[in-house]
């Protein structure tokens, strides 16, 4: 099974993701009533074995949260979206979302934020390829005391390929950075390649 993407496939995917990110930032801006600037996300296809090492440096010395949400669409499109962020970042966006510390637990706040980020972005991606997605409830894989690279390792081992999407949300008064990882199992990678090839043929 070849999980390598051709250059055309890769470019096509980057383009789809750019548009999805644009749609997501537009929605978020209207929802949050503030200007949201999203940088063009850098995407990278990585072997899932390499993932923990890549994040170790960024997340091992800070309080970080790791939230997972499964997604499932037509044509065998499926995977797991992981959102990683540093907790002090999370508090900034929580204030924007109208959370005060007593009304909701920290975990609830974390899952809400990552669910909003994940579903707005992935819905935008699905729209472009005439697909639609359903989602599982978001789950906290690790937060605070737990070791993020370790938790990632446990998750990543089940997946063939990971699409690493670096997302940086820039809000007017706040900056908020997080990493999104789309972990995709082997046969779903083949399905995605077929979807990409179909789009490329249409051009």
């Amino acid at each position: 099974m070849s999980t390598a993407f051709s250059e055309e496939q890769r470019d096509c995917l980057q383009e789809l993701i750019n548009v999805a990110m644009g749609l997501a930032s537009d929605k978020l801006a209207r929802f949050l009533n503030t200007f949201v600037h999203l940088q063009v996300p850098a995407i990278e296809l990585v072997n899932s074995v390499q993932i923990p090492a890549q994040f170790e440096a960024r997340y091992s010395h800070t309080e970080a949260a790791l939230i997972s949400q499964g997604f499932l669409g037509n044509d065998g499109l499926r995977g797991e979206a992981i959102v990683l962020y540093q907790l002090d970042n999370a508090h900034r966006i929580a204030a924007l979302l109208g959370y005060d510390t007593d009304s909701a637990s920290e975990l609830e706040m974390l899952t809400d934020i990552s669910s909003i980020l994940t579903t707005t972005f992935l819905n935008g991606l699905a729209d472009q390829i005439d697909n639609s997605l359903s989602y599982s409830a978001p789950r906290v894989l690790s937060s605070r005391q737990n070791n993020v690279p370790e938790a990632l390792q446990e998750t990543a081992v089940h997946w063939e390929l990971a699409l690493k999407v670096d997302i940086s949300y820039q809000l007017v008064d706040h900056s908020f950075n997080c990493d999104m990882l789309l972990l995709i199992p082997g046969e779903a990678v083949l399905n995605i390649q077929q979807i990409l090839d179909r789009i490329l043929e249409e051009y």
Partner: peptide, 21 residues
């Protein structure tokens, strides 16, 4: 209200788990 508003505005699902609420 906040949850419903986000569902309507973003047209994306929202979740709540018994573990948190």
């Amino acid at each position: 209200r906040r949850k419903f508003a986000s569902v309507l505005e973003l047209q994306s699902p929202s979740f709540s788990s018994w573990e948190q609420r």
